[in-house]
Simulated assay, not measured.
Amino acid sequence: MSADLGPGLTGLLADRRLLSRKSTAERVAAILRERIAQGSFPPGSRLSEERIGQALGISRNTLREAFRLLTHERLLVHRLNRGTFVRVLTAADIADIYRVRQVVECAAVRAHGARPAPLDDVEGAVEAGRAAAEAGDWAACGTANIHFHQAVAGLAGSERLDDLMRGVLAELRLAFHIMDDPRRFHEPYLTRNRELLTALASGDADGAERMLGFYLEDSRRQLAEAYPEPAGLPD
């Protein structure tokens, strides 16, 4: 079930500049996590240690440690004698991801109501989604949507929650690949993202939280209805 990793590896060559001579497994994991969140490495892709290590200019040991970190985050899976793969989620994974999102994102909106925070990142993600849609780039639109929800979670003002949501939302991006028509899936949420931003900017945190709750339930249901069972890598 391996996929052509050409585009993903091209992106990693650009990411190489982010690594200093004292690069760490955590930095490598952060780069790979973001590439997964951008959809560069689809579910079921086998990650070549040699090719990724060369692209980033890092040692095999560093890369393996990064793989271990991302395996702990449920983004990768190691198959004995076969290598490391991007995980293929199950319907149960989707349900659990949305439980976490409901708790964290709705709490972040409540926190914003109690102590308003700058909305620059939320607004920037809304604008990025609009620009991607106008360009007909629905993969980029999906990435903008991930960044939107990361920014919403960021309204809580917690670095620990930010770290948690980076992993959760990267995992969510793996589910987007199941949607046959990405435009049909993503386009309605562009308007809903802007409506949420408007509610937050106007100080209507209660309204924004209710809106977000319905939004997340609609999104969860769409993915659940599209998701096959069982799902996983073939033996």
Score class of each variant (00 low, 15 high):
M1K: 01
G6D: 04
G8H: 01
A14N: 07
R16N: 02
R17E: 12
R21W: 14
E26A: 13
R27Q: 15
I31T: 09
E34I: 00
R35K: 11
I36P: 05
Q38F: 06
S45P: 02
S45L: 03
S48I: 01
E49Y: 15
E49C: 11
E50H: 06
A55Q: 04
I58G: 02
I58V: 15
S59Q: 09
S59A: 07
A66T: 03
T71R: 15
L76S: 10
L80N: 11
R82G: 01
R87D: 01
A92V: 06
A92K: 14
D93F: 02
V104Q: 05
V104C: 03
E105Q: 10
A108K: 00
L119K: 03
D121Y: 06
E127R: 13
A128R: 09
G129S: 13
A131P: 03
E134L: 12
A140K: 00
F148H: 12
F148A: 14
G154C: 09
L155W: 09
A156E: 09
D162Y: 01
L164Q: 05
L172I: 05
R173S: 10
A175E: 10
I178V: 15
M179R: 10
R183Y: 08
F185G: 12
H186I: 13
E187I: 04
R192T: 12
E195M: 11
A201C: 02
D206E: 15
G207T: 12
E209W: 02
E209K: 07
R210D: 15
M211R: 13
M211L: 15
D218R: 09
R221C: 00
A226L: 12
G232H: 08
